[in-house]
Design a protein around this nucleic acid. Sequence first.
DNA 1: GAGTAGATCCTCT
DNA 2: GAGGATCTACTCA
Length: 201
Amino acid sequence: MRKLTIKFYRRNNVVQIAKELLGKILVTRWDGIETSGRIVETEAYKGVIDKASHAYGGRRTERNEIMYAEGGLIYIYLCYGIHHLANVVTHTKDVPHAVLIRALEPVKGIEIMLKRTGKKQPDHSLTKGPGNVSKALGLDTSQSGYSLQSNELFIAEDGFTFSKKEIARSPRIGVEYAEEDALLHYRFYVKGNPFISGKPQ
DNA sequence: GAGTAGATCCTCT
DNA sequence: GAGGATCTACTCA
């Protein structure tokens, strides 16, 4: 298993990166406690031209400043006052492209994830949906801006990939307000995987 | 099983 | 002062 290099994140095609992140493993190792999961669902947010993005129209605030940084960082923010959402920042400096991690399949540290989420038994809801992913991996806004090249937080590949047939794409979730951009097929997921969010396939 | 309401707080206008 | 890249529980059938 090896970490994805900074080059992976700094490419200019965020939609392609979102697709390629499927099957990769997101690892956190806070205080030496490792939890990880295989990514099975992502969404691409294409910066200033995407109405669903925080950076639409070049909006730049203290909160989304991290999206304008160079690729290879994580951007975490609070949604609906409850849920922390984790995004992978891509592309180069001043181009606010990002990939939202929507769902994982737990790999390591399932016991820890249960503790963090307050669940008694592992079930499909453990890492289903962006809010749960962050909770299970111990991510919150205080880690926003963290480098994905660090030893505490990174994405790795172990040679496993999903075949083209297993990958489906669809419009994104929860962005109906984004008008025509809500229709863009920027969401990628693994067909039939029990951990993907939204309605069962 | 499907549909709906409520939670809850930070950020931007 | 409003609303959001969501989740869960509860209702009703």
